[in-house]
Simulated scan of single mutants.
Amino acid sequence: MSGPSTSEKPRPVEAVDAALFRRVLGRVPTAVSVVTAEGADGPVGVTVGSFTSVSLDPPLVAFFCGLHSASAAAIAAAGRFCVNVLAEDQQRQCAAFASRTGDRFASGAFDAGENGAPQLRDAIAWIECEVDSTFEAGDHLAIMGRVQRMTAAGSDRRPLVFYQGRLVKLDSAAVRHAPSHPFAWWDA
């Protein structure tokens, strides 16, 4: 099977209905994280549902915020950040860091990580990064981080998940081990 000819012009993309786009992509569950940094004016943080791993070698992760987000700009300017992966019982912190007003850090206890970025005490994992690069991605700013340190909490608490426009909990059956075939291609 052959791919498209290099002389063929790509077809223009037709406008995608925003409501349909949200409805269809709302079927993709995402873990909820709070990204924090020690900014020039003190600690800064923002809730994201668009955190992802990018590369194993070098270890890179990325998250996306609205293009005009003051929090994203402050995190990028700080040069380092921490991704705090929220547990299913941290809806309060999720809402606080998603808010545009109020003291976001009053929603729970935190400590400074090794890179200075706040680490939320009850998160289930912490990923400390140095900003590797930033770039515009449509109406969002992408911030890529080079992982410096990472830690997982020593508990079996489950992650907070965003699905179809709301916060949901994983069913307890979803966390049981089910034998499966190894993904040989994963390590290739």
Rank of each mutant, 00 (worst) to 15 (best):
S155T: 15
F51K: 09
S53M: 05
A95N: 12
R149Y: 13
F105H: 00
S172F: 06
R157D: 03
A74R: 03
F51N: 06
R104W: 03
R157K: 15
V44P: 07
A73I: 00
G165T: 08
G108W: 07
H140R: 09
C82Q: 00
E128I: 12
C82L: 04
G26S: 12
A109K: 13
P179H: 05
A40G: 03
T30Y: 11
L170M: 09
C65K: 01
A173I: 07
G145K: 05
Q93G: 02
A95M: 14
L60W: 02
S172V: 12
F21E: 06
A96W: 02
A37G: 07
P10Q: 05
G138P: 11
G79S: 00
P159N: 11
R104E: 03
L120P: 04
H181N: 09
A98H: 01
F64I: 05
F183R: 14
S172L: 12
L160P: 05
K169G: 01
K169S: 11
W186M: 15
G145S: 09
T30E: 10
L141V: 13
E14P: 01
A117N: 04
N84K: 08
P58D: 05
V131D: 08
M1R: 15
T36W: 02
M144A: 15
F97E: 05
A188M: 14
F64R: 02
A72I: 10
E8S: 15
L56D: 07
